[in-house]
Nucleic acid binder design. Structure first.
Lengths: 206, 206
DNA sequence: ATATGTGAACGGCTTCACAGCC
DNA sequence: GGCTGTGAAGCCGTTCACATAT
């Protein structure tokens, strides 16, 4: 059931290809070459073909790829885990913005609930996402079989909350807290550290 | 003046070390071993030492590193570019949340202005950051010698705005728009694609 | 004894070159 | 002729092993 054969980076890029294909589809494009798609995705054509190679063969030589077919193939490869329910923990400034961010839904994710130690209903106003006190989190995760969580709590709380998430059964965490989380190795974490992104960029300006 | 010798990833990690050291300093820790610091930063001790090796020698064998000295050394290596002024373009949900996000300031960055095609003053209320109409952006960048920008506009606008930024003199862009930006190679871009982060994570849950 | 600094080995990802197919 | 598919080569970053310093 698990398919760890894909390198982490390839998985990431396949997601990007997926989105590019979506746009092509909206524009009723039927066929695309590795060169065109690669350019849209910001990678080299060979890279793209290698990545697709991990997953199977979908192209027609001399012609290119059928947009529809390829999109389906990638979806199949990445798993239809896309419709996973997600919870968000930490409804501060960032957290509440993330709730309003339409990108998640657009990519097939639904944030089904949010949690905060001090639940301020105003923060979720207009999002349609229910907000619960933190104490209810673990039960909720267990009873709703939630496997993914977005973590946007202060750095000082992050590890504690992560432990709760893991204990309750969460297997993947998108972590916005500026801390390195210590989790079991069967739990996957993607870190998005806004300040560090900016800081590391600043090095390159002359 | 430019120092491209450091691999991009090393720069990123050095920023992380920097922050860990800051915390140690706050707790009046004077000395730290590569093992301890590495653990805090979520890397292997050898990795840490390699990274520091890019920059110089600061440790005392058999003892470890002096927290104060090391912090200064890293700051020097990364450049005191940290106090760079930054502008934010696109004050939607995400953009306005980023303005409120304290993490940037904490790491030494100041967002000195924001821009939006339809400037709604409410969006920046309480942030102390001025909001200007998009037309004024290029002049502002040039006259204030802005080198860094945070881009949080819709995907459809991203490339256009990026072109304007580059033309006006911006050299580094932190891009939150779900698009691959096409920029000259002397312009550095860090992409933060929230939906893709989540999607690529979802692959790993069983 | 303990912990750093670093050349060498390793591994994985990217790119190349070209064979294969339409 | 054009474009995909893929083994081989190349490259970069990580890890190892150990020499070196206190």
């Amino acid at each position: 059931m698990q398919k760890i054969e894909l390198p982490r980076k390839a998985v990431y890029r396949l997601s990007v290809y997926q989105r590019c294909l979506q746009r092509l589809r909206e524009n009723d494009v039927e066929t695309v070459s590795s060169e065109a798609l690669a350019k849209a995705a910001g990678v080299k054509p060979t890279q793209l073909r290698k990545d697709l190679g991990y997953v199977g063969q979908f192209g027609t030589r001399g012609l290119g790829y059928n947009v529809e077919t390829l999109a389906e193939a990638i979806t199949a490869a990445l798993g239809s885990t896309r419709l996973q329910p997600v919870i968000l923990v930490g409804v501060g400034n960032l957290g509440s913005a993330l709730l309003r961010y339409s990108g998640f839904r657009k990519e097939g994710f639904e944030v089904i609930a949010s949690f905060d130690r001090y639940p301020i209903k105003d923060r979720v106003k207009g999002t349609g996402v229910p907000l619960h006190p933190a104490e209810e989190m673990e039960d909720y995760i267990a009873s709703h079989a939630v496997k993914m969580a977005i973590l946007a709590v202060p750095a000082t709380e992050a590890q504690t909350v992560a432990n709760q998430l893991v204990r309750a059964g969460v297997q993947a965490i998108l972590n916005f807290s500026p801390t390195v989380l210590d989790v079991p190795e069967n739990v996957y974490v993607n870190n998005v550290d806004l300040a560090i992104e900016l800081e590391s960029l600043s090095y390159f300006i002359r």
